[in-house]
């Protein structure tokens, strides 16, 4: 890893010269638009982070003052934004080589690379400090772990090295409900770990279904995505395996007694539908002029699945805490 970091830094010196916002004839640097700093935080990804973090806070037993609940979610969002900015900084060269990402602030030449790095470090540090001071240091330590997991372990280390990168990346997205829950309770128990596991096992079928029908440039820039490295057949099998692993984990909060029948019945129905939609993706192969309808259906459903499952969890827990159900 050290060798890779050093090699990357050597590349960066050259790249930052090539892609930074060029000073004009008088040597004055045009200030970066604030919107470009906002773009660095990957706002679209953040909506899922904020949603699952809110679910973690609302579903946890106990209460938290609204100001502190808001602060916890803000800190989680800032940590996600900071690590996303570090991801932009590290992958600027890769982004420049792909159509989908070539207009991001760094490859688009609208921002200096060091500014993205400093912004990411600053945002991450403030998020952890804010969480520690306002909420507690266990939640802050988890948030720091999430930032390091995404920015260092996933982005810098494993993403360019293994076709299982999406599985590992799923871990980063799985932290928000865990941290949200711990912010309320101050302890790590089976329930928040199950919420972590649900997102962890949901990510591979969600992303690989997309990867099957969207032509990406990852191969061109040397990122070993599973469909490119191992082929379609292996990817389809892996989608099925992770879907089958996800189903019992999604239902687990109910049968360990952490939720009532409300969540349990929703989880059973949704998981059965997920398996039913993954089955045709697993059993078929691409034909000529294939519209990839089963893959598209699975991808769309996977988004609905996660939102409805977490919404059901919150509805279940709120109903239980209010005494509406046993």
């Amino acid at each position: 890893m050290t060798v890779a970091l050093l090699a990357h830094n050597a590349d960066e010196t050259m790249a930052s010269t090539a892609i930074q916002t060029a000073p004009n004839a008088t040597g004055t640097q045009m200030p970066t638009e604030w919107r470009d700093f906002f773009t660095l935080t990957k706002p679209r990804v953040m909506t899922l982070v904020i949603f699952t973090a809110i679910c973690g806070v609302l579903a946890a037993p106990g209460s938290i003052h609204p100001v502190l609940g808001f602060t916890a979610i803000l800190a989680i969002a800032m940590g996600a934004g900071g690590s996303a900015a570090l991801n932009h900084w590290w992958e600027a060269d890769i982004d420049a080589g792909m159509k989908r990402t070539m207009n991001r602030p760094l490859p688009g030449g609208r921002m200096r690379r060091e500014d993205a790095r400093d912004f990411g470090i600053f945002l991450s540090a403030v998020s952890v400090g804010l969480m520690g001071v306002a909420i507690g240091w266990l939640a802050a330590a988890l948030l720091l772990g999430a930032v390091i997991y995404y920015a260092v372990i996933y982005t810098m280390w494993l993403k360019p090295r293994t076709p299982q990168n999406i599985v590992i990346g799923g871990g980063a997205g799985a932290f928000p409900p865990l941290i949200g829950w711990v912010a309320v309770t101050g302890e790590i128990t089976a329930m928040p770990l199950l919420l972590f596991a649900i997102i962890f096992f949901w990510t591979p079928p969600h992303f690989w279904a997309l990867a099957l029908f969207v032509q990406s440039d990852y191969a061109k820039v040397g990122i070993p995505m599973l469909p490119v490295v191992a082929g379609e057949k292996v990817t389809r099998r892996q989608i099925m395996i992770y879907t089958l692993l996800l189903a019992p984990i999604a239902i687990a909060p109910w049968y360990i007694g952490g939720t009532s029948w409300i969540y349990g019945s929703v989880a059973v129905v949704l998981s059965a539908l997920f398996v039913a939609l993954a089955m045709p993706v697993f059993t078929r192969m691409r034909a000529d002029e294939d519209k990839m309808l089963p893959e598209k259906a699975l991808f769309k459903f996977s988004i609905v699945y996660l939102f409805v499952l977490f919404a059901a969890l919150v509805a279940d827990r709120v109903a239980a805490y209010q005494g509406w159900i046993a």
């Binding site: 004009n24 008088t26 004055t28 045009m30 200030p31 970066t32 638009e33």
Partner: peptide, 20 residues
């Protein structure tokens, strides 16, 4: 810096200052 560049420079700096 041309007048247009200078205007853009000031606009961006002002917008950033408001956000900060």
């Amino acid at each position: 810096m041309t007048p247009d560049e200078e205007r853009e420079f000031l606009r961006r700096r002002k917008a950033r200052n408001w956000v900060v």
